[in-house]
């Protein structure tokens, strides 16, 4: 496996995972870049097989974890729990489809923040870049079936939260 393939397969889920530790989106991207570069520089120390996703995930996670904590100790990194991008209100008021979509996205962002941490983590890791169940599992130390189960539950919880929020909005 080459570095570019490794980045392609793991980038999205790793950035998402780091962001759930409390790093801002920008810091999460930076830290993920640090992680991949550190992995490349210390590749001789990796003792698993390069096609063993589980070992690879555990190794990357270890590096990311160490860098994150080292950064925290040094006073950099960390900060807010998770920040969602502000979705700008559509420029053209007549474009109702775009407006609806933006409303929906904003609703999803708000509902995400109201979920349990494990549910939010798996959703972020999956939908940031559409990472595979195997890659997510390798970083979380879970099997594909377990990730799938967790994802289903998280999606159900998100839908429920969205409905709740909608009801509240209608009442207000």
């Amino acid at each position: 496996m080459d570095l570019e393939s490794l980045i392609s397969s793991h980038r999205g889920s790793l950035i998402a995972l780091i962001s759930t530790w409390g790093a801002s989106p920008r810091d999460a991207v930076e830290l993920a870049q640090d992680t991949f570069s550190e992995a490349y520089l210390s590749r001789d120390r990796y003792k698993g097989e390069w096609d063993d996703l589980k070992a690879l995930g555990a190794w990357l996670l270890g590096i990311a974890n160490n860098l994150f904590h080292a950064g925290q100790r040094a006073g950099s990194g960390g900060g807010r729990l998770i920040s969602m991008p502000e979705v700008p209100v559509a420029d053209r008021p007549e474009d109702t489809e775009a407006q609806e979509r933006e409303e929906r996205v904003r609703g999803v962002q708000q509902a995400l923040l109201q979920l349990k941490a494990t549910e939010r983590t798996v959703l972020l890791m999956r939908y940031t870049e559409g990472s595979s169940l195997a890659v997510i599992g390798s970083l979380l130390g879970l099997g594909e079936r377990a990730v799938e189960g967790r994802l289903r539950r998280a999606r159900a919880a998100l839908k429920e939260q969205l409905e709740k929020n909608m009801l509240l909005e209608e009442r207000s």
Binding site: G12, I15, A16, P25, M84, V105, R106, L123, Y127
Partner: peptide
């Protein structure tokens, strides 16, 4: 919608 909402992490 989730994908769209997580754009900043991409």
């Amino acid at each position: 919608d989730l994908f769209d909402g997580l754009g900043e992490l991409r």
